[in-house]
């Protein structure tokens, strides 16, 4: 049993699942549009929450929010279900497949056999699509992978019922209604305003203020927690920014692509200029990652390196503050 479903690789799993599921339903929407209209660009620093033994940092909102916001703004309805019973979860999935409905699933990555060893952490907010079943094997379209994969029933159950923070609890979701008419202009302006407000939020751990807080923290790390821990924290920070899913530069390139596509779609040339600017900011985030990776090469004065990184991050915060203020004005 196999549903007619086109697998497309995307940068980020949640955008990818949303985009691929909606395309399957006849709404042609790119990953950047999903990300942008879902107000996916975000920044939050959670020093009190340790993730993999390092302070928590996220470049995106909580799992599920992007798709939910997108759905709300476009008038799409999504059905979501969670389970306490794995057998029931499988029954619902199988039933869906019989009815030709490809389903989005939230899963943990630790037990995903096709994931490289280096990425197998207890991270539970990964997303993929199941688009068929042959024998006791599920056909898997994981949008962060170039090709499709297969998982056996027990393998899929394991990842659907992974435990820990954000445990998926068999979470299954799929669009059930797509409106005939979509007001793109309204959706896009609303989404961009939301992102501007998020990034400029008067909250110390969020947006550009969050970046400044991280900058202050980075500066203190070597003396406060020691060079060894500081190096580990920094590695986690760069991983969050660049590792699979962000499309590079902590989602800045995906967002630039969105601004360009949106600007053309609703005919706002100002957005194209903003896209160029965001691309340049994205390049600086990449430079920041390169600079950070130097910490592990040279053993010279570590405090200087951390000070330089803190300065770079402050500069990025200034640029982005200016950027989002401007974006808010043009939209």
């Amino acid at each position: 049993m196999q549903i007619d479903f086109e697998h497309r690789i995307t940068a980020h799993c949640e955008n990818g699942v949303a985009s691929n599921l909606l395309r399957n339903k006849g709404l042609d929407i790119s990953e950047p549009m999903v990300f942008g209209i879902g107000s996916g660009l975000f920044y939050v620093y959670l020093p009190f929450l340790k993730v993999n033994h390092a302070p928590g940092l996220s470049y995106r909102p909580a799992p599920g929010w992007i798709f939910n916001r997108l759905a709300k703004r476009l008038g799409i309805k999504i059905k979501r279900q969670k389970f306490s019973n794995p057998e029931k979860a499988q029954r619902v999935l199988d039933e869906n497949l019989r009815n030709n409905i490809p389903a989005g699933l939230q899963v943990g990555v630790y037990h995903l056999p096709y994931f490289p060893e280096d990425y197998r952490f207890h991270f539970n907010a990964h997303n993929l699509v199941v688009y068929g079943k042959e024998g006791n094997e599920y056909l898997i379209s994981d949008p962060t992978m170039e090709t499709v994969h297969r998982l056996t029933e027990p393998e899929l159950e394991k990842v659907r019922f992974a435990k820990g923070v954000l445990a998926p609890k068999g979470h299954i979701y799929y669009p059930i209604y797509i409106p005939q008419q979509i007001d793109w202009e309204k959706a896009i302006t609303k989404a961009i305003k939301k992102t501007c407000n998020d990034m400029l939020a008067p909250v110390p751990i969020v947006g550009v203020k969050g970046m400044r807080m991280v900058s202050r923290a980075i500066r203190k790390w070597p003396t406060k927690v020691g060079v060894k821990k500081a190096n580990y924290y920094l590695a986690q920070l760069v991983r969050m920014q660049e590792e699979i899913g962000t499309g590079g530069g902590g989602f800045r390139y995906i967002y630039s692509a969105f601004l360009q596509e949106a600007g053309k779609k609703i005919n706002r040339p100002a957005l194209l200029e903003m896209s160029d600017e965001m691309t340049k900011i994205g390049d600086l985030w990449r430079d920041f990652a390169v600079e950070a990776s130097r910490v592990y090469k040279k053993r010279s004065n570590q405090t200087d390196v951390y000070n330089k990184l803190a300065d770079d991050l402050l500069h990025l915060a200034d640029l982005e503050e200016e950027f989002f203020k401007k974006l808010k004005k043009v939209i």
Partner: peptide, 28 residues
């Protein structure tokens, strides 16, 4: 597998490209 990036072509238009990896990421 490879990873997807969004990047601009010579005309400044956004497009996608696949990457086999990045040294800076390998280091961290």
């Amino acid at each position: 597998s490879r990873e997807l990036y969004y990047a601009v072509d010579d005309n400044g238009e956004y497009t996608t490209a696949l990457s086999t990896g990045w040294e800076a990421k390998n280091i961290v």
